[in-house]
């Protein structure tokens, strides 16, 4: 475990906590894409299949449980909670996310570390995570109103990805044969998706103006 990875995991945890906090306290999920949250729940379900079969560390197990619980409870809130579900902007959150799931599944069948169910599901979760933010970014473009917590949510997610890239660089130089092309390529693609959002987020923060994404 290195400082970049720990910081990345904590930032990732923070993004989820900020989102749960938003939904739980103000009982609203306005501006949040349910599609993205569903994709994240699938990502964690597919990636943490080995939760009970192969123990890495207490930290690893606890964090997996936290990510699973939080992603599924966010989906539950947005779909089932009688108050929150009414604030869900379903008219704008129309990105057909199965368009993302199928290609990721096919790619995982083609490119994986080992053609076993667990490895294919792991690769699928890596590819799906790379594109999971897409419906959320599309929703932000459409509604153009980015409230603070939603902006912070996307910002923390992007920061977690940048920190993970630093973690891979660190591990590459400190651990022999640490090569994970699948995670690296998908991780870089995912981080690039955030790049333009980062630009507008930082510009708006610097000029102290409301965050507006160009149409």
């Amino acid at each position: 475990m290195n400082v970049f990875r720990l910081a990345g995991d904590m930032t990732h945890l923070l993004s989820v906590v900020v989102l749960l906090l938003k939904i739980h306290t103000i009982k609203s999920c306005a501006g949040i894409s349910l599609k993205t949250q569903e994709l994240y729940a699938v990502v964690f379900a597919a990636r943490y299949l080995d939760l009970f079969v192969h123990f890495v560390s207490l930290y690893n197990t606890v964090m997996k449980l936290v990510f699973l619980a939080s992603s599924f409870s966010i989906v539950w809130y947005m779909k089932r909670h009688k108050i929150v579900r009414r604030t869900y902007d379903k008219d704008h959150d129309t990105f057909r996310h199965y368009v993302l799931v199928l290609p990721c599944l096919l790619l995982a069948l083609l490119i994986n570390e080992k053609f076993t169910f667990r490895e294919v599901m792991w690769a699928f979760s890596i590819y799906l995570e790379a594109v999971a933010i897409f419906p959320q970014l599309v929703l932000l473009q459409r509604t153009r109103n980015i409230d603070n917590l939603t902006g912070q949510y996307v910002f923390f997610l992007g920061a977690y990805r940048v920190l993970y890239i630093l973690n891979w660089i660190y591990r590459y130089f400190t651990e022999p044969h640490f090569v994970h092309w699948i995670s690296w390529v998908a991780g870089i693609v995912q981080t690039l998706l955030y790049a333009d959002f980062f630009y507008y987020y930082i510009m708006s923060w610097k000029n102290n103006v409301k965050l507006e994404l160009p149409a």
Binding site: R5, H12, V56, S57, N60, M63, Y164, S183
Partner: peptide
């Protein structure tokens, strides 16, 4: 045997 490749990252 090579230690099974572990996915030790989240």
């Amino acid at each position: 045997p090579a230690e099974e490749k572990k996915h030790d990252e989240l």
